[in-house]
Design a binder for these strands. Structure first.
Length: 265
DNA sequence: GCCAACGTTGGC
DNA sequence: GCCAACGTTGGC
């Protein structure tokens, strides 16, 4: 079984007139969701490698408090991302069609929220230890744990929205998420980390990575308010729309047309 | 909102 | 195939 990390944006964002927001609350309410909208070749190729049962870290990206919010699993292996040929979809890609799908997605099923939100700030703080000696508050991860974190793509390859997570890193994250023990630097309301275990997830969403538009039923935020401590919530103004990434794939399929990003010069 | 890092485009 | 210019990601 392999492990992965997939990014989603917890904050609203309008793309082509639609809010592609998708929160963990939504994820939780729908249980299983297609991870549509990935328009990056490397990320797509990684999704094609995923097997049913593989475990996935659900990551909050591009928000005030980025980090790992939940655990999920691959419930359906790669299949064509039909949103690519839906012209009304935010991530419509005019260059592909059903005859030759270029983009793929998998289905993910939420397994559990992280009891303790594992923030990027924490992971970076751990990774910053020159000696690989773990910080005192998370000393239970040991030196090996520090080394595993240092090697995470999340730390050294920031822009990849779908990444492989090595087994050691996976177990360190699991340990952190279930044990806690550090001061959550990102918490705004003064909540501590030790006592509450639900501080983790709040809303997750995907955007640059997965565009989850369809399923939102309107009130995602309201949904699981119960377990969501406010600290984790982020509210940023929505960003301008159309910013999605659409990297072309270089790898496998040949793509006849590529959108030129630099045409506007 | 700013801007660093990094991926991609596309001229040569 | 190299690499400069330019876009985008995404943390801060």
């Amino acid at each position: 079984m392999k492990h992965w990390l997939m990014k989603a944006e917890p904050e609203s964002r309008i793309v082509k007139g639609k809010d592609v927001k998708f929160s963990v609350d939504d994820f939780e309410s729908m249980k299983t969701t297609p991870w549509e909208g990935v328009r990056n070749a490397e990320a797509r190729n990684l999704m094609k490698e995923m097997q049913a049962g593989d475990r996935v870290l659900f990551y909050h990206s591009n928000c005030k408090n980025p980090g790992i919010a939940a655990f999920a699993e691959v419930s359906k292996e790669a299949y064509p991302d039909y949103t690519a040929w839906d012209s009304s979809h935010p991530y419509y890609d005019e260059k592909t069609d059903q005859e030759k799908p270029k983009w793929y997605m998998v289905d993910l099923t939420l397994k559990a929220r992280a009891e303790h939100f594992v923030s990027l700030a924490l992971l970076k703080r751990i990774a910053a230890s020159p000696s690989s000696e773990p910080p005192a508050d998370v000393e239970y991860i040991g030196e090996e744990g520090v080394k595993a974190i240092k090697e995470m793509a999340l730390i050294n390859r920031g822009r990849l929205s779908v990444q492989r997570v090595e087994d050691e890193a996976w177990s360190v994250i699991e340990k952190l998420a279930s044990t806690g023990g550090w001061e959550d630097e990102a918490v705004k309301k003064g909540k501590k980390s030790g006592s509450d275990k639900s501080n983790a997830v709040k809303k997750g969403q995907s955007s640059g990575m997965k565009a989850k538009t369809a399923t939102k039923n309107g009130g995602e935020d309201s949904g699981v308010a119960g377990d969501i401590p406010d600290e984790a919530r982020e509210d940023k103004p929505k960003k301008p729309a159309a910013k999605k990434r659409k990297a072309e794939d270089e790898t496998s399929e040949a793509q006849p047309l590529r959108r030129s990003t630099r045409t506007r010069k």
